[in-house]
Computed example of a mutant assay.
Amino acid sequence: MQDLTQLEPIARDLPQTRRGHERCVALLESGAELFLEFGYDAVSLDDIVNHAGGSKASIYKYFGNKEGLFKAICDYRRDQFFNDICQSFNSEQSDFRSYLITTLMNFQAHLLLPEKAAFMRLIVEQSQRNPELARHIHEQGPKQIQLAIAVALENGHKKGFLYCENPMFSAQFYFGILRNLEWKILMGLPPEEFDQETNKYIEYSVDRFLDGHQKP
């Protein structure tokens, strides 16, 4: 279970007790489950409360309304994504090539999970209807993921084991390695199985990426 303080950037009113924390997390998880199963429009706050327990007062207290709950679900799942996939680079535990390869392989494995793919499509659908939500998700999701890699690239540049004048541009280029898979998932096409050929593609792409970041 998440520590109490880890809900601070997600819930508008941070739970003060363990029970309040558990109720808040239950609403996030139940909301996500129902939105994925039935679609955003078909799910009411009453449905979520009946599934999670508690009362609608808890939703209003922690998230404001249904839209606020959905935004919080996106933030909650983003934090889980970071914990599972996008770790900070530690030169004592891994070389930089391995770090870049592992990050992409973890990212790809994450995208291939049917539930994760379905949530990506749900986000895109809701973002089309709500420009403010779209901006929030982009700023707190893809942009933050790119920033984590950009920081690693900037540190590598400072330490001299690669050359990177614009880390944020390079981070966008790096994640473009998986763009084809992301498009397939968003369009509902069946992706190829995760196999040795896919591993070779990621390794090849990372090597070419690093080739482009050698000192001139």
Rank of each mutant, 00 (worst) to 15 (best):
C24L: 09
E139K: 15
E139S: 13
N90F: 08
T5C: 11
D95Y: 02
Q128C: 12
Q128Y: 15
H136Q: 11
N83M: 11
F107W: 11
R19E: 10
L36V: 03
D3K: 15
G141I: 01
Y201L: 10
L112T: 00
F209S: 03
Q214M: 09
A26Q: 08
I137Q: 06
S170R: 13
L104W: 03
L28Y: 01
W183T: 10
Q80E: 12
Q93Y: 06
E22Q: 13
G160M: 00
L34G: 01
D41I: 05
N65M: 03
Y76F: 15
I177R: 00
R135A: 13
H136P: 08
M120I: 09
N199K: 14
D211P: 02
C86S: 14
P167D: 00
I10R: 04
K71S: 12
I202Y: 00
K71W: 09
F82M: 10
D41G: 06
L4R: 14
H157A: 11
Y76V: 07
K56M: 05
P190F: 02
M1V: 07
H21T: 13
E22G: 05
S94R: 15
D211E: 15
F107Q: 10
L104C: 04
A42W: 08
S94Q: 15
G64C: 03
T102W: 10
I85R: 01
K200D: 12
A118G: 10
V49G: 04
A152M: 04
F96I: 00
Y40S: 05
Y99I: 00
M120C: 13
Q6P: 02
Q140V: 10
H157P: 05
A109T: 06
E139L: 12
F35T: 01
T198G: 04
Q214E: 11
D47L: 08
L133M: 07
Y62C: 04
P114W: 06
F161M: 02
K184G: 11
E22C: 04
F194T: 05
Q196K: 12
N65Q: 07
A152R: 03
N83E: 14
L104E: 03
I59W: 01
L69N: 03
S94K: 12
D41C: 04
R12W: 07
F89P: 00
Y163T: 05
K143Y: 13
V49W: 07
D75S: 10
E67T: 10
G53P: 06
P191A: 05
P15A: 04
H110A: 11
K158H: 12
F173P: 07
R23K: 12
H51A: 14
Y174E: 02
G53A: 14
N166M: 08
N166D: 15
E132Y: 12
E115N: 14
E192V: 08
H138E: 09
L100E: 00
E182S: 11
